[in-house]
Nucleic acid binder design. Structure first.
Lengths: 212, 212
DNA sequence: GAGATTCTGAGAGTAGACTCTCAACAAAAA
DNA sequence: TTTTTGTTGAGAGTCTACTCTCAGAATCTC
């Protein structure tokens, strides 16, 4: 989903690089892309993903079908395009040493949510809901999942002074992923739930060794 | 995949129910279905899932395309049809009281694997590999995942004297799922790995509170 | 065996995701 | 302004999962 691309600088520190200042063309493209995606998610939510054709999305966004495909190679991309995985990875990376991997991931989650507006959270919920109810979308996000897990394994391994292939490292990553997933599933079914708080609580349980 | 349906009695105890003894027709059907599925998995593995058409599967199994669809409503069903989820649930259910939920699930896994032949394990690996590499299949298995998790929540809740909606219960379920998933991912990439042992080890880590 | 039931093959047909091409137009560069 | 480059719309076309129908063949029942 990603916020309106007009708010360009994502990596807070502007730095030295050239900031070519987006021309009119660039801005128009960004606006078109955002509009297509917005209409797509709206239609998918209202009529169902499978029941909505790309043609209808194009019509709603007032562009030609070929234009839709120019921005989003596949129908799934209309939904799964997102950069929170990378953001999460960076957030973990930024945690102070000395934390256990699970603590670090928990803190990273807190930081991540702290930077999101309510509107963005709602957007995320829409996306999760779609991804968790439409098999096709859940499938399309497999790549993201695997990539994130691999990256996290490297990060956690470094943090704990272990090998990324260490079974204990893998287990740790998997546990966090699974825990967050279940909370997301619940969230999809209970709109009013406080997602950030629930994730934090669940990770706290995990941190405590899942007492039951 | 499920073992050749000829080996009918899955729940060891044959019990009282009528065993109508399969007629020739039944056996033929079962054989046809098994053959289609076997050829499908073979072709998918060799040529890739997307690159293999249902028509090719039909040709390889020496039946008409319409026959394939009679047995398997969708192309995905050629792979994801399986009853290990239920088996796992029953195995957990059969564990003695007094174990923690994670211990119970770990023991259930052991029991489950103990009942599988090497051939069946290999078959499972083929399926996991396909499901974890083909987004479409991973997506199609979402239903199974959610159903299993829901069922497990009920089971664990009863076992721990909690509510199925209790966050601690959900977290526990999710952690186990995630841990097993990561091991499966590794397994898909490392054919020679001892999957049952690795799962057991990973769950042992989880049981110990994921020390790192 | 004769008749009832079920399974299969053949093939035509639909839908919708995705591709490709080309001409018209808008914006940037000169 | 003129030229050059990049973006769009229109539309024809492909590919394949999936549906439906019907006739004939194989099994089961009596």
């Amino acid at each position: 989903m990603s916020p309106p691309p007009d708010a360009a600088p994502k990596t807070a520190s502007a730095g030295t690089a050239a900031a070519p200042r987006p021309g009119l063309r660039e801005r128009k493209k960004a606006r078109t892309k955002a509009a297509i995606q917005r209409e797509a998610v709206r239609l998918f939510r209202d009529r169902g993903y499978a029941a909505t054709t790309v043609e209808q999305v194009a019509a709603a966004a007032e562009v030609a079908p070929s234009t839709v495909y120019r921005y989003f190679p596949t129908k799934e991309d209309l939904v799964i395009s997102d950069d929170y995985d990378d953001a999460f990875f960076r957030a973990v990376n930024a945690q102070p040493a000395g934390l256990t991997p699970i603590q670090a991931q928990r803190e990273a989650m807190r930081d991540l949510f702290a930077g999101l507006s309510d509107a963005e959270l709602t957007q995320q919920r829409e996306r999760w809901l779609l991804m968790l109810s439409e098999p096709e979308l859940w499938g399309a996000s497999l790549g993201n999942i695997k990539r994130t897990m691999r990256a996290m394994a490297g990060e956690v391994a470094g943090r704990a002074g272990r090998d990324p292939a260490d079974p204990a490292v893998r287990a740790s990553i998997g546990a966090v992923f699974g825990v967050v997933l279940t909370v997301a599933v619940d969230w999809a079914e209970q709109p009013d739930m406080d997602f950030p708080a629930a994730v934090d609580q669940a990770l706290a349980y995990l941190e405590a060794g899942l007492p039951l």
